[in-house]
Structure formats: structure tokens, C-alpha cells
Simulated assay, not measured.
Amino acid sequence: MSPDAVPEPGRRSAIAGFRAGGAAPHEALWLPDWRDEEWNLLFGYLDIRNVPAGDALIRPGEPDRTLYFVLRGELEIIVQSADGLTMGRVARVGAGAVLGELAFFDGGPRSAAAWAVTPCEVAAMSPAQYAAFELENPALARTLLFALGRILATRLRRTTAKLVG
């Protein structure tokens, strides 16, 4: 367990937020079979970060592989055009959403920016924290990976539909 793990009082509200599914279906971490016990195990491996409104959580091109679980607040996801001159909003996400999964999985640089629209609280998981979680909880780690894979697949399908639609 990380020394900066989500504290017990915060865990209850974080778990409630993810269970409530406040995020849009394509952004939500869907783990319907997880009880409080499983969520508590996961949040024991995550670090809390507060992001003031207007600050960046993720910047394009960064080599960081941290995976973020949005606990409260709203963030805008912004991508830069190929010419590097214009930016466009891809999504606005809130509690229950997951961010940073692409770099978490492939180790590549960040492909988009995430800016706090309101003050935000996120739980962060590095690949090393995931490895520790997986070592102690292999079945839960596998379930989490499939849930993250579902989010990636859903986002890819939405992007494909926009390109061909």
C-alpha cells in the first residue's frame, strides 16, 4: 500500500462515485461485481492528487504513464491539430472517469491534454503501483485491465464512427 494512498474517509466517497457511474458510459470504469472490499483494495494502491481549476493534469507529449481515476471535479480533454496551431475539445469528464489509459498501456507520450475546469481530485496509479496491486490481487487486476480495455475499445469505436460518419 502506498503511503499516500487514498485515505479512508476519501475512499468511501471515491467508491460511491465510481459505483454511481456519474461518468458518461464511454468514460466510466464499469466493475459491477466489485464490492466495497475490492474497491478498497484498489484505492489502497492509488495516490491522491488535487488539481486546481485551470491547471493541467496531463500535457501532450509528456512521457508520464500514470493512470488517473477522477474522484471529483471536471476536466476537459483537449487535442492539438496536426499543424500544431489549433486545439479542440474532445470531451469533458467528471467523477467516475478514467484518464491516461493510452500512455499507461503503450508507454508512449501523452496524446492529449487534460485541464481542470473545476477544482479536481484524482487518484493516480503508476505502472509500478499497478504491478504491486497485481502481485497481491491478480484476479482483481485482470478484471481492472478488462474494464480499462473496454474504455479504450469504446473510445476507439467512437473515434472511428466520427471519421467514417
Rank of each mutant, 00 (worst) to 15 (best):
P60F: 09
R59C: 11
V93I: 10
R89K: 12
W115K: 10
S81L: 13
G84P: 08
A95K: 03
Y130A: 11
A53G: 12
A53M: 09
G84I: 02
E74L: 12
E62T: 09
A56M: 14
G107V: 05
I78A: 02
A97M: 04
V117Y: 05
G84H: 04
A123P: 05
T86A: 14
G61I: 12
V98Q: 00
P63N: 13
R65S: 07
V90R: 07
A113N: 14
T118Y: 10
V93P: 03
D55T: 11
M125E: 05
E76V: 09
P60H: 13
A116S: 11
G100R: 00
F104D: 03
A116Q: 07
A53E: 14
E76I: 03
E74P: 00
A112Y: 10
A95Q: 01
R65T: 12
P127K: 04
A95M: 06
Q80L: 06
V90Y: 04
Y68E: 03
G107C: 11
G107T: 09
E121F: 03
S126E: 13
V117G: 04
Q129D: 15
E121W: 06
Q80T: 15
P60W: 01
P119C: 03
L85G: 09
R110T: 01
L99S: 02
G61W: 05
R92E: 11
A53Y: 11
S111Q: 13
G108C: 09
E74V: 02
I58K: 01
E101L: 10
R59L: 14
A97K: 00
T118K: 10
M125C: 15
C120Q: 08
A91D: 15
G94E: 04
V79Y: 03
G88T: 09
G108E: 13
A56D: 15
E62C: 02
A116G: 10
G61H: 07
R59W: 05
L102G: 07
L71C: 11
W115F: 15
